[in-house]
Amino acid sequence: MKYQYAVIGLGRFGSSLSRELIKLGYEVLGIDKDEAAVDAMEDELTHAVVADSTDDEVLKSLGVRNFDCAVVAIGDDIQASILTAIVLKDLGVKKVVAKALSELHGKVLNKLGVDRIIFPERDMGIRVAHQLVSPNLLDYIELSKDYTIAELSVPKHLCGFSIQQLDPRAKYGCSVVAINKKGGIIIAPSAADVVNENDVMVIIGTNEQVEKFELEVVD
């Protein structure tokens, strides 16, 4: 059976997430209390229903407890978001992911045992800021408060260098986990693999390690 997702809240974030999950080949049940939002998505999703997600009997009748993951994507009602998360946890949904509107909202969701908390606006702001100050940084994702994964474009002065010559693990403590080349992606590159101009290196390490490698080697 295909992995099944329930996305609760079909605003900008929830509808975008739902469309991408469908595009990736998964089954998606969309839920929103707004009939217009459901009507706009019903032809794109596996199922879309108008429902009050804070009502445990309603979610139980929709079989949400049997889904592999439920995403609380409610965009403007913190109370409804929190109550929905409580209902999902009480129903025993395998994995509950929720969008947080603020740090305080995130702390409450964490106390409720939500498996993953997403801060779309904050995280996007952090990524854009890093891209603005570093021309070679293509993407930046904070894995935790200490660890980062970053995509760095290889500049001209590093063309022809092997991973062994760059030696990021010994010199900086971070690792090159992939190289995206025109001909394809090299996963877990060997010491002998060479980077060329405009290749993309995927680096993982602590925030400080990645930043130091970026400033001292790439820039």
Rank of each mutant, 00 (worst) to 15 (best):
T84W: 08
K156F: 15
G113S: 12
A129E: 05
D56E: 15
A36D: 10
V97G: 12
C159F: 13
V50D: 00
D43T: 06
G92R: 14
V133Q: 14
L62V: 09
A73E: 08
E142D: 04
K145P: 06
A98K: 02
S61W: 13
S134I: 04
D90E: 15
D167Y: 05
P168D: 11
L158H: 02
K107I: 08
D56G: 13
D43E: 13
S134H: 15
S53W: 10
D32L: 03
I126P: 00
D39N: 14
V133P: 06
V50T: 03
H105G: 00
N110L: 09
F67V: 15
L166G: 03
L104T: 12
E42D: 13
P155Y: 06
E142F: 00
S134G: 11
S102W: 06
K111A: 07
A73R: 01
L83T: 13
A98W: 03
I118K: 00
D77I: 04
E142K: 04
S81A: 14
K107T: 08
T148M: 03
M124L: 12
V71R: 02
P168K: 10
E121F: 04
H130N: 11
E27H: 04
I74D: 08
P168L: 11
V128K: 05
E142G: 00
T84V: 12
L91K: 12
L158Q: 02
T54L: 02
G75M: 10
L143K: 03
L88A: 11
V93N: 05
D56S: 14
D77K: 10
E151N: 08
R127V: 02
D77M: 06
G63I: 14
D68N: 15
L166N: 03
V71Y: 06
N136F: 07
I117V: 09
D52I: 08
G63E: 10
P120G: 02
L137D: 01
V108E: 00
Y140N: 01
A48W: 04
L62Y: 10
L137G: 01
S102E: 03
L166C: 07
I163E: 07
S53G: 13
P155N: 07
G173V: 06
E151Q: 12
D76W: 12
D68V: 15
D39S: 13
M41D: 05
D34N: 09
V64H: 14
V71D: 03
K60S: 15
E57F: 15
A150I: 02
F67L: 13
I149L: 02
I82T: 13
V96R: 01
M124T: 11
K111Y: 08
V154S: 09
F67C: 08
A37Q: 11
I86C: 13
L138W: 07
D34R: 03
T46C: 01
K145A: 11
V93P: 06
E27K: 07
V108T: 04
Q131W: 01
K99V: 12
G30Q: 03
A98D: 03
I82H: 14
L29A: 01
V128N: 07
V50I: 05
A37I: 08
